[in-house]
Nucleic acid binder design. Structure first.
Lengths: 202, 202
DNA sequence: TGTGCCCATTGACCTGAATCAATAAGCTTT
DNA sequence: AAAGCTTATTGATTCAGGTCAATGGGCACA
């Protein structure tokens, strides 16, 4: 148990330097450890997302199903450890999406009730909640601007720079969908870029 | 002065029922009232967005300039009173966008320094910051999902339902851009829909 | 009561990415 | 190592929406 909470505890203490061991104890009471096998669905459309999760290890993706096609909305892993359909979590409305473990994944999560209780009983919980909301906002906003301002090719290159590890762990057709194009289109982007690279090399 | 702060004060007290007059006084110290004329730029690309603003009256839009074309990212008014390039505000990085008053607008705003001071001195400030971050997140997430899942036509119809007032205050070419299409395309959407409506009427 | 400008509409054409289809290249599983 | 998957690539075709261009309506201002 201590082991499974080590990472999230380190995270909390880094974000909130003034947190005491006693306050941490209140958080700890509300945390559940869950494990998922590769392919497990963590959330389905129509469900209210009741948890905010912290990834100890593993990899999950968010996706929508539209006309039988999967639209990937995000990937979360040890580097990007907090995930939730936070809109559904906050508004208590059914989520439109799937969350799927695409590797064996272990998370530490807190449910809605637990979070509200912490807000009302533990000082500094509001600050933690604020940090999490701010972090999720910043991530979403950056993705939003990328879709507005960048071409699919630029989005691909940015992703290569910013999250190179993903390409080792995620099939290309999911990356394509995350970038907002079909697998065929991503394949052509890659062909174009490697031609350009070899062209400028000599 | 009392008059110019009445709305934001009511807003704070509604969000934070337990706030005291004394605590409010600390907030009040940090608030500035600003007025903009129609057409004034509130933020330009390259600037760090240093404020979170609350609209007393008026209407502003967010937009990007890309290849000489304006891409509208959002509208804010009395019904949607909090605005900021919150990503730039939080990360302290230059904003890529313009914020423009498209009507004469009066705002009450707080700058970054003031907000941080409040977080460190006033209890309940973190909670207010959390609410604001959560609200901005929810708005952005909804818009994001609309772009992923809805056609331009559906986005138009949703906007008609959800913010009918905008159509009286904003020229159609800005609405088109906000919906992610050209003015020509929006005109055709409207033509299609009014034909459909009259067709199903008899 | 013109005159000029901005905006919305409509039509003709163009283009980038989606779709459809076929092939090839990795993998697992036995 | 053969058989049977799934994924990636490449080519041909289609299509929604963008671009370009022309027309017309509304409104401000002289």
């Amino acid at each position: 148990m201590a082991d499974q909470l080590a990472k999230i505890k380190a995270y909390y203490f880094a974000l909130l330097p003034s947190i005491t061991e006693e306050q941490w104890w209140f958080y700890e009471q509300k945390i559940s450890i869950r494990t998922y096998k590769k392919g497990d669905l963590i959330l389905r459309p129509g469900q209210i997302c009741d948890t905010v999760s912290f990834i100890n290890s593993g990899l999950v993706r968010f996706y929508h199903l539209l006309d039988g096609k999967e639209l990937v909305a995000g990937f979360f892993d040890e580097e990007q450890p907090y995930f939730s359909d936070y809109e559904s979590f906050l508004t208590r409305k059914p989520s439109p999406m799937y969350i799927e473990a695409i590797e064996a994944t272990e998370v530490a999560d807190i449910n809605y009730e637990g979070v509200q209780l912490l807000y009302d009983t533990v000082e500094a919980a509001d600050r933690l909640g604020r940090y999490i909301a701010e972090g999720l906002y910043t991530m979403l906003s950056a993705r939003n601007n990328a879709f507005l301002l960048d071409s699919p090719e630029q989005r691909y290159q940015k992703l290569l720079e910013q999250r190179p590890g993903l390409f080792q762990r995620v099939p290309q057709y999911m990356i394509a969908s995350y970038l907002g194009v079909t697998p065929e289109a991503l394949s052509r982007i890659r062909a174009r870029l490697s031609k350009k690279a070899s062209g400028s090399a000599h």
